[in-house]
Design a binder for these strands. Structure first.
Length: 579
RNA sequence: UGGGGUGUCGCCAAGUUGGUAAGGCAUCAGAUUUUGAUUCUGACAUGCGUUGGUUCGAGUCCAGCCACCCCAGCCA
């Protein structure tokens, strides 16, 4: 794991930090900062979640508070242990440590149920027999108010009995629901007697078959926050309209009972002040040329359009990890994109900048020839072969690597041009170029096969140019190479953006899969890397000079059959101006 | 056409109580360079969705428009 960025960057301010500083100054939450990261375990985490993770954990770190890791597992049908394990691994990999044990909303099911009983007894919740279709019809529309359920005035005794029977498993899924009694004519649809419990006769991955009723998100989330004594409940913009319900539920439950439950769970000191949590929303992350919805990512996986959740082209954390992105680069990215309430689409170039910044500073250099072209040095014999010592990094002292230099070697096919374009600084007939870390050579003869394809170059070497510039002339270019003797065969996977369109979510484009880039993966199997890479370990990152940053694939690479993933290319002002 | 939001440089994004538009990414130009990389230097919004108003002075206050996003799951 590459996590060594010691570059200091001041933390930019944003509205949430302002709010917290204000709260701290006013003593609103008793000077505490308690956040939480509450994913539903129904898929893998993606870079959008990283924004939330960095926010919640980062805030806790910065203000000496704590951040809980909580699985919001109220919908057993879509969730699984596999996702729980993957999510935990991703958060740890990002470098964050949650406060205490991992929490589960399902661990609060009993308390949640008891609070529901409290609402029922208080006449603030009722059991409704409307079918899902009827409920939708009764709810009204965006412009029309809803109508009261015929069960709205049922006595609390009867509601109590029915709700208890719901949990006993006496009814079928959908036969009854528990609803908060608020206002069917509210302009905010979330307040039109929202359903807070539904019947599901299924097995839950954490609680087994004990529960027959499951709480809805709106009901469970605010109470879970209160039970964990969360101060700042941060979520994305689409939950803005849910905030009145979040507050309604907490304010219609007895604070003492919330406090006591919090106390019993060990989340509150005996004599401490108890303050209810407050929700604040921020804009979710969008990145161009990417889709960021779990539903769509899941679809790509299930349709086999990518290799899995951790396919290196995916914006998932496990995909980015496999691609070679470092935790530090992702955290840095989440910092520089800022935090606001306006929906925006961040340029993928920002993410690329972050990983280049990290890897430029922290990765060792090596040479890799992607498309080998044989070069024979006509005035150099194998008896003259020598070992060269090259620094592993141009600026930081992290040791050196050895490369043998002999009569035959390989350069990249793209570094030779029979008829070079103006400004070309690489090898061409009759011209000189420097072999990186070695000598200046001159192309004397080009050997082609019967089809005219260049198969070998015969070059002469200037023996006076090792470690010094030739006299009386300037050699414009430097190219990388690999010795024939000792070079390692490697497979290199080159990734391009998964989508051709900058906004695959654009509804005018139809299905997002229409924008899929058919050439997003290119596999090169005949690459040659320098001998020093023999000791490369899984996930280790390198800069292959003049090519880009690559990492050892954590699953497919073997010592004798190396596999590298290209994380990102180097910035390139040459091909950019020549296309 | 109900409710809730958002509109500052190509992309993000700062702009405390109104005082004369931070920063990053990208881009362009130049210097250094045995990576056409890195690094360094310089350029890059008389303008803050729009129209009016208040004011000596408005991105910041007021009013009206316009555009876009979210909400009618017993999903989260």
């Amino acid at each position: 794991m590459n996590d060594s960025s010691n570059t200091d960057h001041a933390l930019p301010s944003h509205f949430i930090r302002h709010m917290i500083e204000h709260d701290l100054a006013s003593g609103k939450h008793g000077g505490r900062v308690q956040t939480r990261f509450p994913p539903e375990p129904n898929g893998f985490l993606h870079i959008g979640h990283a924004k939330s993770i960095c926010l919640n954990f980062g805030l806790a770190e910065q203000y000496h508070g704590a951040c809980n890791m909580r699985f919001d597992d109220t919908n057993p049908e879509k969730e699984s242990q596999e996702f729980i394990d993957a999510i935990k691994a991703d958060v740890k990999w990002l470098g964050f440590k949650w406060h205490g044990e991992v929490r589960y909303t399902s661990a609060y099911f009993q308390q949640l149920f008891d609070f529901a009983l409290q609402l029922v007894r208080a006449g603030k919740a009722y059991v409704c027999s409307l079918t899902p279709e009827q409920a939708r019809e009764y709810r009204g529309s965006l412009t029309e108010p809803g109508r009261n359920s015929p069960d709205r005035e049922r006595s609390s005794e009867e509601n109590l009995e029915l709700f208890l029977r719901m949990q006993k498993g006496e009814f079928a899924d959908g036969q009854y629901s528990l609803r908060a009694k608020i206002d069917m004519s509210s302009p905010n649809i979330n307040m039109r007697d929202p359903i807070i419990y539904r019947i599901r006769n299924v097995v839950h991955h954490q609680t087994g078959d004990y529960w027959k009723v499951y709480p809805m998100y709106d009901y469970a989330h605010c109470i879970s926050d209160a039970l964990e004594h969360v101060t700042h409940s941060l979520c994305t913009l689409e939950f803005e309209d849910h905030r009145p319900l979040y507050d309604w539920l907490l304010h219609n439950l007895s604070v003492d009972s919330l406090r006591n439950a919090c106390l019993e769970l060990g989340n509150l000191q005996e004599d401490a002040r108890y303050v209810l949590p407050e929700q604040t929303e921020f804009a979710r992350l969008n990145i161009n040329y990417n889709v960021m919805s779990k539903r769509k990512l899941k679809e790509l996986v299930e349709l086999g359009l990518v290799g899995g959740w951790d396919d290196p082209r995916m914006p998932t954390l496990s995909g980015l990890r496999r691609r070679g992105f470092t935790p530090a680069s992702i955290r840095r990215f989440c910092e520089i994109i800022g935090m606001s309430r306006s929906e925006s689409i961040v340029d993928i170039g920002m993410l690329e900048h972050c990983i280049r910044e990290d890897l430029d500073e922290n990765s060792a250099r090596a040479m890799c020839v992607l498309r080998p072209l044989k070069v024979t040095l006509i005035n150099f014999t194998d008896e003259q072969a020598q070992t060269l010592h090259l620094p592993r990094h141009p600026k930081k002292d992290i040791g050196e690597r050895q490369i043998n230099f002999g009569r035959t070697l390989y350069i990249d096919q793209t570094d030779f041009e029979q008829t070079p374009p103006p400004g070309y600084k690489r090898l061409s007939p009759g011209e000189e170029v420097r072999l990186r870390g070695a000598y200046v050579i001159k192309c004397e003869e080009v050997i082609c096969d019967s089809e005219g394809k260049v198969v070998e170059l015969l070059c002469s070497l200037d023996p006076s140019t090792l470690g010094q510039n030739p006299q009386g002339r300037k050699v414009k270019g430097v190219i990388h190479w690999v010795p024939a003797e000792g070079a390692l065969r490697a497979e290199v996977r080159i990734y391009d953006r998964l989508f051709n369109n900058s906004n695959p979510d654009d509804k005018l484009l139809g299905d997002f899969k229409n924008s899929l880039n058919a050439d997003s993966l290119q596999i090169l199997t005949d690459c040659l890397v320098e001998p020093s890479l023999e000791s490369a370990v899984a996930e280790e990152s390198f800069q292959f000079e003049r090519e880009g940053y690559f990492c050892v694939d954590r699953y497919d690479s073997r010592p004798n059959a190396l596999v590298f993933n290209r994380t990102v290319s180097l910035r390139d002002s040459w091909t950019k101006t020549n296309t």
